[in-house]
Amino acid sequence: MEAHDEQFVPDHKFRDWIVSTFIDGEGHLHNPDHQHLRFADIGVLWTNVDNSRNMRTVIGQAELMPPMAMGKWQRARAEQQIADWFDGMPTFVLTFHAKWASIMDDASFCALVEHELYHCAQKKDDHGQPKFTQAGLPSFGIRGHDVEEFVGVVARYGPTAEVSRMVEAALGDRGTSRLDVARACGTCHLKAA
């Protein structure tokens, strides 16, 4: 693929679907864990640019805005591009790889979207309570993964407390039914990818 064929395309309708499906209280896959995001402005991008990190393919990414880790001109250029795409600076930008999304089943696709939403977190204060700005709005940040461990370490030494909680969640009842996923998603959203 030529560099000029690599694209990032904003999708405001997909953003609206994410909000109405997972964040708004009436969505088929509403998750109260995301209630703080009612106060966030979320931008959504599709891309065809391949990406990898730590020898793993990246198919989704959440970023807190404005972008930070770059030089002054690069940052100003990036801020201008993002503001042009979204008519202002969103709180978060979610980027999804269109090719990978197009081949996922509905449940896997919804899991990918929620995975990125879980990264879009409300900061905690020194006592572990939700943190707010002086205006009374949530103070936002990027949250890391709940579990980060190697299968080989767990096989040799047993699970950590975090891994044990993940295993309990995996073995428990699923909070989302296939019917709810079908009602919320359907293949029409995947074809947009």
Rank of each mutant, 00 (worst) to 15 (best):
S177R: 02
V153F: 03
A135R: 03
G175D: 12
S164T: 12
A155E: 07
R165E: 15
V151E: 08
S139T: 00
V147I: 11
E149V: 12
H145Q: 13
K131E: 14
P130R: 05
D146Q: 11
S164I: 07
D180F: 00
H127N: 11
K131T: 02
I142V: 15
G158M: 06
P130F: 05
H127T: 06
T160F: 08
D180Q: 15
G144C: 10
F132G: 00
P159N: 10
E148V: 09
R174L: 12
P130H: 05
V167D: 06
G141V: 03
G141E: 13
G144A: 07
P159V: 08
Y157Q: 07
H145S: 13
A170L: 14
D180E: 07
A161N: 10
Q129R: 15
D146M: 08
V147F: 10
S164P: 03
P159D: 09
R174H: 13
E149S: 08
A161L: 11
E149P: 01
H145K: 13
G136Q: 01
Y157L: 04
P159A: 15
S139R: 00
E162G: 03
R143P: 01
E168R: 12
G141K: 06
T176N: 09
V167C: 13
R178W: 03
R165A: 13
R174S: 15
S139Y: 05
Q129T: 13
R143L: 08
T160M: 07
S164G: 14
Q134S: 07
P138L: 05
L179A: 09
R174T: 12
M166W: 11
P159G: 14
A170N: 08
E168S: 08
A155I: 03
E168Y: 07
V147D: 07
G152D: 11
Q134A: 10
V153Q: 05
E149I: 09
P138I: 04
V153Y: 05
G172V: 04
P138M: 04
E149D: 09
D180M: 02
T160A: 06
Q134C: 01
E162Y: 07
R156E: 09
V167P: 06
D146H: 13
V163T: 15
A170D: 12
V167G: 06
E149L: 03
G144D: 11
G144E: 11
G175L: 10
E162C: 03
S139P: 00
I142F: 12
F132W: 00
A169D: 11
G136Y: 01
R165P: 02
T160L: 07
F150N: 04
S177D: 04
V151K: 10
G175S: 10
P159K: 08
H127M: 08
R165N: 12
G152V: 09
P159Q: 11
A169K: 14
A135F: 00
G158N: 07
G128F: 02
R178F: 04
T160N: 09
V167E: 12
P138E: 05
E168C: 06
I142G: 09
F140Y: 15
R165T: 06
A170T: 12
F140N: 05
G158Y: 05
V181I: 08
A155K: 09
S177A: 03
G152L: 07
D173I: 04
Q129N: 15
L171K: 09
D180A: 15
V154Q: 01
Y157R: 08
